[in-house]
Computed example of a mutant assay.
Amino acid sequence: MPDSHLREFGQWITQHPWTEVLAVEGVQEKWDIYINIITQAFHRYFPLKQTRTHPADAPWITPRIKRLIQQRAKAFYTDINLFRQLRNKVIREIKRAKKMYYPNKIKHLQQNSSLWFNRVKSLCGMRQASDIPLLSQFSPDLAAEQINDHFASICQTLPLPDKSDGQVGQEDKNFAHFITIPIGDSIEFGQK
């Protein structure tokens, strides 16, 4: 917002006679007229500006940053010194916006750990719902198979460890016996 708009609004608000508000007796009527006058002046001195957002834009990219990027692009062909100034300003603004984006998203959630954790997961792009179906409707054997399939699908998306040096770490030795367990027809839980 240009400084000139602020100055014009400041001059208007200090020089406005407010006769419309003073002529009315009721408090609610005074308030309604005052709000109406202020809203009209606000829209006159600070008109809405449309900006386009793109799905690929980072969430911290503000309309101000987008305007600076447009100005920088125009200056590239006309004034190299202005381009360099705007380039540095865009970089600073993006750093500042990025630094403030995540803290502003979670600062009001500090009292509620559940909401905080859900918001952090959504900001990180993690899924909120599990893909494991309701297991109470299945027999124990089928439920175990469903759980196994679910965790196996998760493990298939993980990268394999690099074993090019031929060394096996302690954690690999502990994990190795799980790989070689033969799976029978069914596993009975809770029975001797």
Rank of each mutant, 00 (worst) to 15 (best):
Q146W: 03
G184S: 10
L6W: 15
L158S: 06
D172V: 08
T51P: 04
R96N: 07
R72F: 01
H43L: 14
N118T: 03
D172Q: 14
N104L: 03
E8D: 15
S139C: 11
S164K: 08
L134G: 10
T62A: 00
L22S: 14
S136C: 13
A56V: 14
T53R: 15
R52W: 14
P47S: 04
V24D: 00
S122G: 11
F42P: 02
H16T: 08
A58C: 04
L158G: 03
R7G: 01
S114P: 04
D141W: 04
F42C: 05
L68I: 07
V27K: 14
S139P: 10
A56E: 14
D32C: 09
A144L: 12
G190K: 02
I37L: 12
T51W: 12
Q71L: 13
Q191G: 00
Q71H: 06
I80G: 10
R44Y: 11
R72T: 00
I35P: 01
D79S: 10
I106L: 06
L158Y: 09
P133C: 04
R72E: 09
R84M: 11
I181V: 15
L68A: 12
D79T: 00
P17K: 06
S164Q: 06
R67E: 01
P133F: 07
H5I: 06
I154E: 08
F46C: 00
N36V: 08
A73T: 11
R72C: 06
L68M: 15
Q111P: 07
A129M: 12
A75P: 04
S113D: 06
F9W: 09
R44D: 03
D57N: 03
P2Y: 07
R67V: 02
F9I: 08
N118M: 05
L86P: 01
Q111R: 14
P17W: 01
S139T: 15
Q15E: 12
H16V: 10
S153C: 09
Q111I: 05
F9Y: 13
